[in-house]
């Protein structure tokens, strides 16, 4: 088991984390490439500031809590807080970041971490319940949405249990291995699934640029599909 833990913490972590970083970089690079090459001359007209402002307005989305989705909005907001803070700033993780990347992050206290973890778990469960029991949510949810939400829960639950032996039903290292492996699975999923919105949420706002269609494209499509003398 020790060997497994070592492997999961060492090479596997480096590999999966690298996949995540490289994948996200790819997303960003492709978006910027698209903006700079395909839309080349209009790069200056990209509403960068609007994008930043829009994105920031969602960091504290008080203005965006719609009456129809109040509980849902608040739950998802709280979940995201836990999702960002706990993996980065938990003391045990801080040590690991420092070892692994040389990042010197401040650490949050254990109490705060516990509260955030429980909050995240609770909110994720709530979102899962929404997806399961509300017809409108069920309508737009695919298997991947449930799977990712549960995969997201796994490291939090197993991490919490590993840190609290009193309520831990399984051996510590089994729990810890679950924790690490599920987090690594999540790393791999980040660039390959909808979790990529960690970086893309910024670029999704540039629809103003996407409305600027490519001149002549329509004619080319029509020619390719209907031949040279394409009629309306």
């Amino acid at each position: 088991m020790e060997a497994w833990l070592d492997f999961a913490r060492g090479p596997l972590f480096a590999f999966t984390f690298g996949i995540m970083l490289a994948g996200l970089c790819r997303q960003v690079a492709l978006q910027i490439y698209f903006l700079s090459v395909n839309k080349g001359r209009r790069l200056k007209e990209v509403p960068w500031m609007t994008m930043v402002r829009d994105s920031l307005s969602w960091v504290i989305p008080i203005r965006h809590i719609e009456p129809g989705t109040k509980i849902f909005s608040i739950a998802s907001f709280l979940m995201h807080i836990g999702l960002i803070i706990v993996p980065l700033f938990l003391l045990d993780h801080v040590v690991r970041w420092e070892r692994f990347l040389g990042l010197n992050l401040p650490a949050i206290g254990k109490g705060v971490a516990d509260i955030l973890t429980l909050l995240t778990i609770a909110c994720s469960l709530l979102l899962l319940a929404y997806r399961t029991f509300r017809a409108r949510h069920r309508m737009v949810s695919g298997p991947m949405d449930y799977f990712l939400l549960m995969l997201l829960l796994l490291p939090f639950v197993s991490g919490y249990l590993a840190a609290h032996p009193a309520i831990n039903p399984a051996p510590w290292d089994v729990m810890m291995l679950t924790h690490i492996l599920s987090a690594e699975a999540l790393f791999i999923m980040v660039p390959a699934s909808k979790l990529a919105h960690v970086v893309l949420f910024f670029f999704d706002r540039i629809s103003a640029v996407h409305w600027q269609l490519r001149p002549g494209a329509g004619d080319k499509v029509a020619e390719a599909l209907f031949g040279e003398e394409a009629k309306i």
């Binding site: 070592d6 003391l91 070892r99 206290g109």
Partner: peptide, 28 residues
């Protein structure tokens, strides 16, 4: 690497995270 401190400290200084042998096995 091995000479770097093996101790992490949280901002509230209530807890230390010690990984003495740098093997990844930590103790709070």
């Amino acid at each position: 690497e091995a000479i770097e401190p093996a101790v992490g400290l949280d901002i509230t200084r209530t807890e230390l995270c010690i990984d003495g042998n740098k093997t990844g096995v930590t103790t709070n």
